[in-house]
């Protein structure tokens, strides 16, 4: 179901819109067999949100962010979170320059367009909150001086679901700041074969090759694109539907703590991006349903008995979505 989005005079050009819609396919040329993940990361970029990725190491998370950065000509940095990582290691610090006899600001890796925060739960809460503050405020304070971050700014934080020893799990309030939580899993057999062939063909070592990615957009075009998407038509019934889903989740049997008001907001932001990628100028209930698992799975906490029985938030959310009546027109 497609319907061309209208192009206002102050909005992005038709070429930019086409480029944005082609991002997924372009990134998928390098990141093979992870279509769902690529789709959701592009959604987060278009909705000006951040992504929490959960998956075992070695599934191409760095390659994904690099490919995204290449496709929009954005700056990319990667920070490996460790227990001894300090907030200033991310945000930067002021140092005394002996030559000029002046204090000089040395900006940290957070000053980029795409930041891969690898294994964010390996650092203590102080360091995590420094990054999360930057995500929320889009600015960084170093020794009392505030530096705005240049948009687009997307943080892709990763968590390893297996090794939980010596980690500092993100509290619910901080998880809420991520627009989407994405699961990355092993690719299918055919995809894995294609991936291995591509990585090993004529390359030395196992360096990540993103040279095949064509830049479809300029980083500076992204904020205008995000503004365009934020203005897509959302009917009152759709807002009502998103709110009903979240309110039902708070009372749902098996959910101990439901999403806060950021839940429906995240649903609508992501649904707008989904509608844009589906080449539509308005949001449909299908968009809400499509993004609901990724937008809500990290905002709900299951009851202890369901957790013991091995249920996942996705299963409970699927049950919930199957029982909430669709919007009435």
């Amino acid at each position: 179901m497609t319907d061309k989005a209208s192009n206002s005079s102050q909005g992005p050009t038709q070429e930019t819109l086409q480029g944005a819609r082609g991002l997924e396919a372009e990134i998928a040329r390098a990141v093979i067999g992870q279509e769902r993940v690529v789709h959701e990361v592009v959604l987060a970029l278009l909705a000006a949100g951040h992504v929490l990725v959960e998956g075992v190491p070695g599934l191409g998370k760095t390659l994904l962010v690099r490919s995204l950065a290449s496709a929009v000509r954005g700056g990319f940095n990667r920070v490996q979170f460790t227990p001894d990582l300090m907030p200033s290691d991310i945000s930067g610090h002021i140092m005394f320059d002996m030559k000029t006899e002046n204090f000089r600001v040395r900006k940290g890796p957070v000053f980029c367009n795409f930041l891969l925060a690898d294994e964010i739960n390996r650092s203590p809460a102080k360091t995590q909150s420094a990054l999360l503050e930057a995500m929320q405020e889009q600015q960084v304070t170093i020794e009392g001086r505030t530096f705005p971050l240049i948009p687009p700014f997307l943080v892709l934080a990763t968590q390893n679901p297996i090794e939980q020893e010596g980690t500092y799990p993100l509290p619910q309030a901080q998880l809420d700041r991520f627009l989407l939580k994405v699961f990355i899993d092993y690719p299918e057999e055919g995809d894995e074969q294609a991936l291995v062939r591509q990585v090993t063909a004529g390359s030395v070592g196992d360096r990540l090759d993103t040279s095949a990615i064509r830049p479809l957009l300029q980083a500076e075009q992204i904020p205008r694109l995000q503004a365009h998407i934020a203005n897509l038509q959302v009917d009152e019934q759709i807002v009502n539907y998103a709110v009903r889903i979240v309110r039902a989740a708070r009372e749902w049997n098996g959910i101990e703590a439901g999403p806060g008001p950021r839940g429906p907001i995240a649903l609508l932001r992501a649904a707008r991006a989904e509608a844009f990628l589906q080449d539509r100028a308005f949001v449909m209930p299908d968009d809400i349903k499509a993004v609901a698992p990724a937008a809500l799975r990290h905002r709900v906490r299951l009851s202890t008995d369901l957790e013991i029985e091995g249920y996942q938030p996705d299963e409970v959310l699927a049950d919930l979505l199957n029982n909430i009546p669709a919007p009435r027109q």
Binding site: M1, D3, Q233, D235, Q237, F282, V283, M284, P285, Q329
Partner: peptide, 9 residues
Amino acid sequence: WCRLAYGHD
């Protein structure tokens, strides 16, 4: 129908 109902078009 969707275009009319949700897109008001």
